[in-house]
């Protein structure tokens, strides 16, 4: 079995993927994870997850090119400028 190991460096931080270990069962997986990713004081906690429990999603459909869904697809600056011109105001005077 392959186990994906996530480690937390300090309390309160989010867990980050550390790597994986191969082991015959869960108990061995825990043991090996501890040895590989926890024995040098580099982690305060580990998540040891059987690989088959990790669902991978790698398809993100965007057939109609809805570019306004994307962070780079919605140039707010231009649209704001146009709106202000129509209203006869400027950003500084508004504030």
């Amino acid at each position: 079995m392959i186990f994906e190991v996530f480690r937390q460096e300090r309390k309160g931080q989010s867990f980050q993927h550390a790597g994986s270990v191969e082991a015959p069962n869960k108990d061995f997986g825990d043991w090996y994870a501890r040895e590989q990713y926890g024995r040098r004081g580099e982690s305060v906690a580990l998540w040891v997850v059987p690989r088959e429990s990790v669902h991978e999603i790698d398809e993100f459909v965007d057939e109609l090119e809805k570019n306004y869904h994307r962070v780079d697809g919605y140039p707010l600056k231009e649209k704001l400028k146009e709106a202000r011109e129509r209203a006869g105001t400027t950003a500084t005077r508004d504030r």
Binding site: V21, E22, A23, W31, Y32, E35, Q36
Partner: peptide
């Protein structure tokens, strides 16, 4: 016998 056990 295998890498993980080697380290352990």
């Amino acid at each position: 016998p295998f890498l993980e056990e080697d380290v352990a």
